[in-house]
Amino acid sequence: MSRDTALVSTQWVEDNLDNPAIVVIEVDEDTTSYDRGHIRNAIKLDWTTDLQDQVRRDFVNKEQFEALMSARGVGNDHTVVLYGGNNNWFAAYAYWYFKLYGHQDVKLVDGGRKKWELDSRELTADVPTRATTSYVAQDQDLSLRAFRDEVVSVLGKQNLVDVRSPDEYAGRLMAPAHLPQEQAQRAGHIPTASNVPWSKAANDDGTFRSDAELLELYTEAGVDWDKDTIAYCRIGERSSHTWFVLKELLEQPNVKNYDGSWTEYGSLVGVPVALGDEPGEL
């Protein structure tokens, strides 16, 4: 993957609205956003109900994902084009999710819904109908997904990138500031993790910065390009955005997203936690 294959512009999307080979999908943190207006012919995935198991804290399994894609009319040969609000947080999460289940051709709309709106491009309330498919997913590609035991075992040996805001990293905030702050887990970050807020990878309009700027950003933050990398945030969506940057735009070979992220790590008993603006030591 590279910028040329993983990313498309809002203009490209507008030029391809009636292309039968692509399926445009909106994935928003505000799951009602689509219902108020969306890109013409786009369908919706609800990350809370469609992509999450409704009992355990985990994703839907392979069979459930196959059933979901088949019902929504997404085929294995379709080019899936993802966009969403809040600078593509959840669209990037869905991108990572599609890759996890082995979908070949996935693209992210540079800037997402915000760029589309700031461009004053058309939104519609019309919901398209799509013919069902017989989608076949692959087993989860666990080279893309980190779990807590792995995170604890690689402390000090691999790059950990905490992509939350500096105040969340330091422990001064518990959650993104558009949410109430009272939370169950401890504040702080995983010791040795660099803090590279996801937002530093994006311009104000939500588009990604250039490859040269991105390389400099992570290099200056202390990312060792000879080591594997795990990205995390609070619940795994913002770190999908950074995973996308490191894996798909900068083409780093071994990058995982720790979707358990701080809500899991900050609730673990007995693990090391660092407070303040510095990475901290083990």
């Binding site: 505000d30 609000g85 809040n86 600078n87 915000k114 805001s165 500096p166 105040d167 905030l173 993104p176 500031a177 558009h178 949410l179 807020p197 937002s199 530093k200 104000d204």
Partner: peptide, 15 residues
Amino acid sequence: VRLLDRTGEFTAEVP
């Protein structure tokens, strides 16, 4: 609307 911290770093955004 974006909320920037005391250093100008992005903290949150809402439509």
